[in-house]
């Protein structure tokens, strides 16, 4: 680890961005507990949520105290993508969110793991987990897209709804030195292929909106996020200084 202050600040910012992504998505997936369409999927979604939570804890600990960061920051201080904070919606929405995010996370972590930066050790472990998440999302996208008429309609709706949050994933993050344009190209190629195989239409709409582009990374979030945080943080905040 190099210790010039400037570098540390950049690493901290990057750890927050990646850590918040993992934390927030893990929280959303945790909301599925007891509500999944079939028991086998309860177990699968919880596995993914636990992987993400594990990543979040490592990343947030690189930036400070994990619990202080998770439970005591205000909404505007969170650096996660707007995509991951989107409510679960129906199972199709959750799968579309997983497909878009895990494909991005896989490409990003693969590149970080190959480098020798401060995130390489975490990325080397996480990329294997995320590879599985990506496969899970792909398998379900294929089944829902090319399943029944109803599932096709729902999956298409989900893909269309979340598409405008996908551009944000490739906005450069300070402290992360990767080829963002290359990542985006690879992401588009992979995602397009999965959607095509799933008999879904690749949305034509913009992948960023005036509000979406880079917004989560700058602390601008969507309305449901505030309520999510209120629920997540209230107990911890109700007992200042307590240990659990």
């Amino acid at each position: 680890m190099t210790t010039t202050p400037a570098k540390d600040t950049a690493v901290t910012a990057a750890a927050l961005a990646l850590g918040d992504d993992a934390l927030v998505l893990s929280h959303r997936l945790g909301e599925w507990a007891g509500n999944a369409p079939v028991l086998e999927e309860e177990v699968a979604l919880a596995n993914i949520a636990l992987d993400l939570l594990g990543q979040a804890r490592v990343l947030l600990s690189m930036a400070g105290d994990e619990d202080e960061l998770a439970f005591l920051r205000e909404e505007r201080a969170f650096r996660n993508l707007q995509l991951v904070e989107q409510p679960n919606g129906d199972f199709a929405h959750t799968i579309a969110r997983q497909l878009f995010f895990s494909a991005h996370q896989y490409l990003l972590y693969a590149e970080l793991a190959a480098g020798d930066g401060p995130f390489a050790p975490l990325a080397a472990k996480a990329v294997k987990e995320v590879d599985y998440h990506r496969d899970h999302a792909r398998q379900w996208t294929l089944r829902l897209g090319d399943g029944t008429e109803e599932s096709h309609t729902r999956m298409q709706r989900a893909v269309d709804a979340l598409w405008r949050h996908t551009g944000e994933m490739f906005q450069p993050v300070e402290g992360i030195d990767v080829d963002w344009t290359g990542l985006e190209t690879a992401w588009l190629e992979w995602t397009t292929e999965v959607l095509r195989r799933a008999t879904l239409t690749v949305p034509e709409g913009p992948r960023t909106g005036a509000w979406a582009a880079g917004a989560g990374r700058q602390g601008l979030h969507t309305e449901p996020f505030g309520r999510m945080l209120a629920e997540m943080q209230h107990l911890h905040r109700s007992h200042p200084g307590a240990s659990w």
Partner: peptide, 15 residues
């Protein structure tokens, strides 16, 4: 339970 072999394999891994 699984709808097909591929999901059966994944469900087995998870469970």
């Amino acid at each position: 339970h699984a709808p097909d072999a591929e999901l059966a394999l994944r469900n087995a891994r998870d469970l």
